Simulated scan of single mutants.
Amino acid sequence: MRVLPLALFISMAAFQAPAADVTAPVREVMDITKTNWGTVDADWKYIFDPAPLSKLFSKRFQAAYKEAAKHPAYDTENNEPGDPFGYDVVTNSQDGCPFENLEIGAGPLKDGLTDVKASFKMWTCIDEAEIKNSVSEVHFDVITEDGTPVIDDIHRAADGERDSVLAEMQSLAKGQGQ
Rank of each mutant, 00 (worst) to 15 (best):
D88S: 01
N78H: 14
E67I: 08
K132M: 09
P81N: 07
V3D: 15
P52C: 02
T33P: 05
D21Q: 07
G96Q: 10
A167N: 15
A118W: 08
H139D: 08
P84H: 04
P72D: 00
I32N: 06
P84Y: 03
A19C: 02
G96D: 03
D95H: 11
Y46Q: 12
R2G: 15
V26H: 09
F57W: 14
K59D: 09
R2W: 14
C125N: 04
L113N: 13
P50D: 06
A68C: 08
T23E: 08
G82D: 02
E103M: 11
P52S: 01
W37P: 03
F48R: 05
N133F: 07
L113C: 11
E103A: 11
H155F: 07
M1D: 13
L102G: 04
V135F: 05
F57S: 00
K45S: 08
E161I: 09
G86K: 06
A167P: 08
I104P: 04
T91Y: 01
D153C: 03
S134W: 07
G82F: 02
C97V: 08
L6S: 10
L113V: 15
G38P: 04
F120T: 06
M169G: 08
P72M: 02
K174A: 09
D88P: 00
D115F: 11
S58F: 08
H71S: 03
G175C: 04
G86C: 00
G112C: 05
I143W: 02
A42E: 13
G112Y: 01
M30F: 02
M122Y: 00
Q16R: 14
D163A: 00
E67D: 14
F57T: 04
A73L: 00
G96M: 12
G112W: 02
T35R: 14
A7Q: 12
P50W: 00
G107A: 09
I10N: 08
R162G: 08
P72R: 05
K66D: 10
A73I: 00
I32F: 10
Y74E: 11
I104E: 05
Q176K: 15
S171I: 00
E168I: 05
W44M: 06
I154W: 06
A17S: 09
E77Y: 03
F61L: 04
L113S: 15
T144R: 07
L113H: 09
D141C: 08
K34P: 02
W37L: 03
K117A: 13
D43A: 14
A24L: 09
D75L: 14
T33C: 02
E161P: 06
D141G: 14
A68V: 07
P84V: 01
V3S: 14
D111A: 14
D115L: 12
E168Q: 15
D115K: 12
P5R: 04
N78Q: 12
V116I: 01
C97A: 07
V116E: 11
D163T: 00
T91M: 04
V29M: 11
R156W: 09
D43T: 06
R27F: 08
D152Y: 07
L6D: 13
A68S: 05
V90P: 00
R60S: 15
A118R: 03
F140N: 03
Y46R: 13
S171Q: 14
P18R: 11
L8D: 01
A64D: 13
I47Q: 05
I131C: 05
F61E: 00
P25D: 03
K55W: 09
F85Q: 01
D153L: 01
P52Y: 06
G107N: 08
F120K: 10
